[in-house]
């Protein structure tokens, strides 16, 4: 099975492919509208020398842009999620539940929280599909 270096465009493409290939996602996400940016804070000690910004866009079960971006574009997303590299790695390895991480302040969310809670199944499904991507993490590769 192909492996992808985390936080590269190839890795994002593989994640997007998982989402677009999921019939379950299409059904769960039929009401979701809007973009989510993900900010992974720099952690030079873990081989993440610079903050990584990703822009992902979802529309009623379809997936639109799914790209690495700069800080300015990340801020334009409907929802901005941010956190330290170690936390995102835990989420991507299914060691940390994203909702729990938000409640504990390990991840932060900017945007309408009521919308996210209403669509929590969609959020969880997107993260579940991320955990299916065979990922090489910067501090493991």
């Amino acid at each position: 099975m192909a492996e992808y270096k985390a936080f590269t465009q190839e890795w994002m493409d593989a994640w997007k492919e998982k989402i677009t290939g999921s019939q379950e996602y299409k059904e769960i996400a039929k009401d979701w509208e809007g973009s989510v940016s993900i900010t992974v804070n720099a952690d030079p000690s873990k081989n993440v020398p610079e903050t990584v910004y990703m822009f992902t866009d979802y529309w009623h079960g379809d997936v639109r842009d799914f790209v690495l971006c700069d800080a300015a574009r990340a801020q334009t997303a409907k929802f901005v999620m941010s956190g330290d590299y170690a936390r995102w790695k835990q989420v991507a390895k299914k060691e940390l539940d994203a909702t729990k991480a938000l409640m504990q302040g390990k991840l932060k969310l900017k945007g309408d929280l009521t919308y996210v809670v209403r669509n929590i199944k969609t959020v969880n499904k997107v993260i579940d599909l991320l955990t299916e991507v065979n990922t090489i993490f910067p501090d493991e590769g």
């Binding site: 302040g105 309408d112 929280l113 009521t114 919308y115 809670v117």
Partner: peptide, 17 residues
């Protein structure tokens, strides 16, 4: 308590809408 902001945001969001 980070959880308090979750509670606050949910209630405030609901009251606004």
């Amino acid at each position: 308590l980070p959880f308090s902001f979750i509670v606050q945001d949910i209630i405030a969001g609901n009251l606004e809408r």
